[in-house]
Design a protein around this nucleic acid. Structure first.
Lengths: 203, 203, 203, 203
DNA sequence: CATGAATGAGAATTCATTCAT
DNA sequence: AATGAATGAATTCTCATTCAT
């Protein structure tokens, strides 16, 4: 079976990547089984190794792809609109990715929780462009007096992203009961901006 | 043979539990190594099996202990004082546990991220008493008009706990840079109550 | 499809054979890698199998070629001259082959050391014509009284060839330090004829 | 099965070493099979790894043991007697080792023929004490005028050892036909000292 | 004919668990 | 009770060979 088209090859690679994401999301790097991944992807064990040099590399590629997908979300974010609308757009884009690529997202989140010295820098690096975008939105919010200015914007950006992840985790953990993906963006923005205190008086 | 005093036995058990927590925190259930745990705890491999029936049971016991420690935090929470003071006390108690039993906490958090059907219910169950306490505090806050009343208090409790975990994770992930354990409780309460919006006018 | 000229085909075959000899010399039959051989020879893996039915056959052909090269050395050996000159010529021819086809020679020597029932007879068989020539030379030496006659000439022939191989091995093993290829023929003849005892009185 | 006596442990180790030597002698490092070695030694696969960290280490230990055995041969070599008697004693000791530890010897010889950069220095190093002894004997022979003095004694020592190995190889290769182990020592000394030329006139 | 992707048997190695001492 | 040697199922990875393109 030689000389297959680059498209066909890419298709197999993609299928392996997605199957691997599923397994790694479910069982982690150590718990996942290369044989099972290959089998589930519909290829023989050896074939997987024609695409990825080792289990570790496969994992790294899945992580990379997960980060890439996450970072890609805000391409072409609008410039106009209220801060709240902007944050909502960001959160909705995030949820959209989650819907389509849940497996990759879960691998990223799960790995992020393990703080392994060999993957954590990778995660941070790939997250950088995403955080930049959040920061840009928040900075305009600070200028407009819609965001408290007593904290570094980097920290606020981390808090926003963290809030999203937190809600994802609660979504997963509750089996989708609460919060649902529909309500999640609004909830995230509300929690981030307003907190749990009593409603602010609107001027 | 050799009858051992119950105290000595309990001491060995405890050492095994703590060493195991450290290893599970570092490498997860699958990645950890029974030999290494026993060795690090200063006993032979076989001895570990005199205390725990299997690796899985050892893991479950570590998880259980982690949850117990977390749930124990609020023993003797005061009844009086402002809502903010109460939440701060809760958060500080949490951080205090974190300082002393970081390894157990990391195992719990890490496992919580994996959503495994066989351990997730366990986590939820063990978390219940803790959540109850948070709920009790929040309910009084709602009565006092200090907490928004448009959301179920269960959800607010989850958000508070989630915010704490989120900040723990950012603490670990940043290598302790931000947030530091000192500032963490205040930050958590502020984020939870006030959000990132502009300061409320105090009446 | 694509009919190839017999010359081109022979050229590819030869390149494969030589590359294979290099790899087998370096790593042995089991250690060598079909992929690596094909790659180094500049063809695809599958192509190799158009020329040789299996790794084992490829190895057998390399061995055969090595023996053939070794046996070819004495074509046109002169009839006249002293015994010592004759042996010197034999040894020099041997060294000449070694220079040009070192890889094949090393495969043969290496394989000879493993005494495998499935290749050893092959080696012996291919060595036969070469040994014949040595025997012929030695027989004339015996007739001329220049060789001790108390040992079967077959054994003496084996000793002569063995001495050559021994010195090759010491040449390879010493990284070419001692003996050098230049001094090797003379040394071989001297060792074979004179031994390490004190010089004979020449009559 | 714990706490076995050091003797029992050493016994198992020894059996593994000997079985491994047999397999490595037969099939080489790459061709040998760890499972088969363990099985033949009467232990489970995993047990072998309790004694040797890897196939490579096992091989290195076999090589080491082979060299050690070879180097041990001349303990207590006598000081008196003729050169020829001394060399004969050396050769006989060698043959004695060969009889008892043929498998180790074959591994050493076989490996020596492969000139692998990672094992060759090891071989040389372990051979050193043995060569020293040969040298000492030969030096006395030179002083006594029984050995030609026109060659460095190191080279002569290598030639003597090489001659022995050469005859071993011919012994193995001929299936024990020629030379037999009985005649081998005398033959080696004769070949080494006298060569194949006509007998020297004895003074 | 050449190619190189696919295959899967086989090899080395790990490791949780058992159990004789 | 403690030990650590023995076990073998399970896992990762290799590689000779096949065959569709």
């Amino acid at each position: 079976m030689a000389r297959i088209s680059p498209e066909a090859r890419e298709k197999v690679r993609r299928r392996l990547l997605e199957t691997a994401a599923e397994h790694f999301a479910e069982r982690g790097l150590e718990g996942a089984n290369v044989d099972a991944i290959a089998l589930a992807a519909g290829v023989a064990k050896g074939t997987l190794y024609n695409y990825f040099a080792s289990k570790e590399e496969l994992f790294a590629r899945v992580l990379e792809e997960g980060c890439r997908l996450a970072a890609q979300r805000y391409r072409g974010g609008r410039r106009s609109g209220s801060l709240r609308a902007h944050l909502l757009a960001l959160a909705e884009a995030d949820v959209a990715v989650l819907r389509e690529e849940e497996r990759f997202m879960r691998v990223v989140v799960r790995e992020a929780m393990s703080f392994r010295p060999d993957t954590y820098p990778l995660l941070i690096e790939h997250m950088a462009p995403y955080l930049m975008q959040v920061k840009a939105v928040l900075e305009r919010g600070i200028d407009a007096g819609e965001i408290r200015s007593d904290r570094p914007v980097e920290q606020l950006a981390l808090l926003f992203v963290g809030t999203l992840v937190l809600l994802f985790v609660q979504h997963w953990g509750s089996g989708g009961t609460w919060p649902s993906l529909e309500e999640l963006p609004e909830l995230a923005v509300s929690v981030f901006l307003d907190g749990a205190g009593p409603p602010r008086e609107s001027p």
